[in-house]
């Protein structure tokens, strides 16, 4: 029954990168093998593909190409200098490092939350389930000022932490909090449908055969949900690396300490240093591209592994 509930496209993850259908990966399903497209009686191929390419070029490709062209105007030495400057290195380290930590924390907390949501019934479960999407729906600037106020030394949470000597707002810890906030739904919403779909009979069989609960989870459940977890992790990570709005309010923005790479791009722009801004931007763009391909691969793995998409 629960298998039927969750459809393969799992609409709850808006930003899942490529929930690629295996059909797309197999060779052309029908039509002539000589051409680059299969035969179809449905009209509109030229029109819609033409419009797609035009729209994609105008809005995404040409603007992003401008970034590469601008960076290509620089000498290789200049590019290396920009990328190896202490400030740039630190900003990249902070962005990628904290995003990694935040994604890892989200992995653990996401696992707990998904397990509670999928496996247990308790009062308020549906509300809890709906609340997961708040970070998707709440604009980043609003999240930024709300988190900053909350965790400042005179805030609701910050005033509890201050006596313990823990400062969150205006420290790298604050960045971490913001990145955990925005990343959590990615892990939960990627893993949730997979866990819901998991064939319970396997677990029951394992239990019947005398396997302990932990063994069952380790041997049966974990391998099945692992690809989904990794996908969620990668999505949360990708989102966190580029995040700007929620972080700049809470970060303190101290160079080399709590200055994230997107902020450094903005600062370089404000200092008239376009070369620096575009070089860092290109670096992040390439990283984003690589991440996308990794996510893409993970998702394919996940689907073949669980056979969900069949």
């Amino acid at each position: 029954m629960s298998q039927a509930e969750s459809t393969a496209e799992s609409p709850s993850v808006p930003a899942r990168a490529v929930p690629d259908h295996p059909a797309l990966l197999t060779p052309l399903p029908r039509g002539d093998a000589s051409g680059w497209r299969g035969h179809s009686v449905i009209p509109g191929f030229n029109l819609t593909l033409g419009l797609t390419l035009l729209w994609l070029s105008l809005i995404v490709l040409i603007p992003l190409a401008a970034l590469f062209v601008k960076t290509a105007e620089l000498t290789p030495e200049h590019i290396v200098n920009i990328l190896t400057s202490t400030r740039t290195l630190n900003a990249l380290k902070i962005s990628f490092g904290l995003s990694l930590v935040a994604a890892a924390i989200n992995l653990v907390l996401g696992a707990v939350i998904v397990w509670a949501l999928v496996r247990y019934d308790f009062p308020g479960r549906r509300i809890l389930d709906a609340l997961i999407d708040i970070p998707f729906a709440l604009p980043t600037a609003v999240a930024g000022i709300a988190l900053t106020t909350l965790y400042a030394e005179n805030g609701w949470i910050g005033s509890w932490l201050a006596p313990l000597g823990i400062r969150v707002s205006f420290t790298p810890l604050g960045i971490l909090v913001a990145l955990i906030f925005i990343g959590l739904p990615f892990v939960v919403r990627t893993v949730q449908p997979v866990l819901e779909d998991l064939d319970h009979e396997l677990e029951e069989a394992a239990t019947t055969l005398g396997a302990g609960r932990l063994t069952t989870i380790r041997r049966i459940v974990l391998p099945a949900v692992l690809p989904a977890f990794l996908t969620g992790f990668a999505l949360a990570f990708a989102r966190a690396v580029g995040e700007y709005g929620s972080v700049i309010f809470i970060a303190g923005n101290l160079p080399n300490v709590s200055e994230i790479a997107p902020l450094l791009i903005v600062i370089r722009l404000e200092e008239f240093r376009y070369a620096d801004a575009t070089t860092i931007a290109v670096t992040m763009l390439v990283a984003a591209f690589i991440l996308l391909f990794i996510i893409n691969g993970l998702q394919r793995w996940s689907e073949t592994r669980t056979g969900r998409a069949g």
Binding site: F170, G252, N253, L254, P255, E259, V266, I267, E270
Partner: peptide
């Protein structure tokens, strides 16, 4: 001794 470096004067004042 500077723990927070905002981008504008107003940001620092608020901090």
């Amino acid at each position: 001794n500077v723990p927070v470096l905002d981008t504008g004067a107003r940001g620092s004042t608020v901090t």
